[in-house]
Amino acid sequence: MELRQLRYFVTLAEELHFGRAAAREHIVQSALSQQVQRLERELGVRLLDRSTHRVDLTPAGTAFLIEARQILDHVERAGQAARNAAASAPTLRAGIIDAGYDTMPQILRQLQADHPDITIHQVEAGTPEQYRQLADGRLDIAIGHVSQTPAEVASKLIRLDPLGVLIPDDHRFADLDEVPVAALADELLLLGEESQTPELNQFVIELCRSVGFAPTIYEGTVESTRAAADLVLQHRCVHCVPASFRTSNRPGTTWRPLTAPTTHYPWSLLWHDANASPHIATVVNSARQLAGRLGWLEPAAPPTEPAPSEKAPPAASHSEEPI
């Protein structure tokens, strides 16, 4: 059964005249008659009563007409939906950690400036949740550290973010230009929420262990970057965060880079290897341009965890090479 046969039958049922129906469909009358006859043979029922001067629907034809119209209506709606989707603005679903981590927001602002036609939906989620949403298709692009990404997630290193410590303005570290990592042994250290940045927390812990001590971790929880800054201002702890962390500009606090060793936290753009979105390459390209302009991949000293350790994407469909 062909759609054109349904259309011809509906037109004939409306006109009840072969000549007028054929004219509406822009075909000859004999062709219309042949297609309707084929339809009847396929169905195994007679849809029309034909006489020299009259065409009428049979009971079977009346019942079939209702369903045929619905089928044609569905086909038209499906076509319109496809046309509407093709004409609508392209959409990108991008994950951000929270307002305190500014790398992805900066990338998205650059993307919007470069491509104002792309509609960007920002989804705030911790990195483990971003991995899950990449896997089930709810996100197109995410950001994080590749150490714990699933095998099917591809990546592109985009920023080596200097790691430092957020302290009150009157803290003993405030007079230093740089804080040795070993000096953190005498401090109560605030890490990020485990549900938000477990990789960053592990990175900091391993950094402390690399210089011979296990950090004393503040046991409370913080639900926002503002709450973390408040704890620092109250002298309850110091906060180990990258330079891009927005609360490093909080009045009353000071951020100092860590040294011995000088350390950079590697941020990567992440996407599912099977995601066919044409906007992934566009995001990566905008991010690379931004990184080049701001020197994100040009640290003053080699990072503790060098870029080659970043997890390579699966197969050859995506790679760490420029896109």
Rank of each mutant, 00 (worst) to 15 (best):
D56Q: 15
A82Q: 10
R109F: 00
I120Y: 08
L139P: 05
Q148R: 11
E42I: 05
D114V: 06
A60Q: 13
N84E: 14
A142Q: 09
E40N: 08
P116H: 05
L157K: 11
L48K: 01
R109M: 02
S51R: 09
I66Y: 05
R38C: 00
S155D: 06
A99D: 12
L72E: 05
A89P: 03
T103D: 07
S88E: 15
G144N: 07
T149V: 12
Q80R: 14
G79L: 05
I120S: 04
S51L: 01
Y101N: 11
S51G: 09
L163F: 10
D114M: 10
T103K: 02
A151I: 03
L39E: 06
A151D: 13
A78Q: 12
D140R: 05
T119I: 03
I97W: 04
F64H: 04
Y131S: 02
L139E: 03
I96W: 03
D114S: 12
Y131W: 12
A135H: 04
Q133M: 15
G61H: 04
P105R: 11
A63F: 05
S147K: 05
A87H: 07
T52I: 03
L72C: 07
T103F: 02
P90H: 13
S88C: 08
L160H: 10
A94S: 08
T119S: 12
R138C: 01
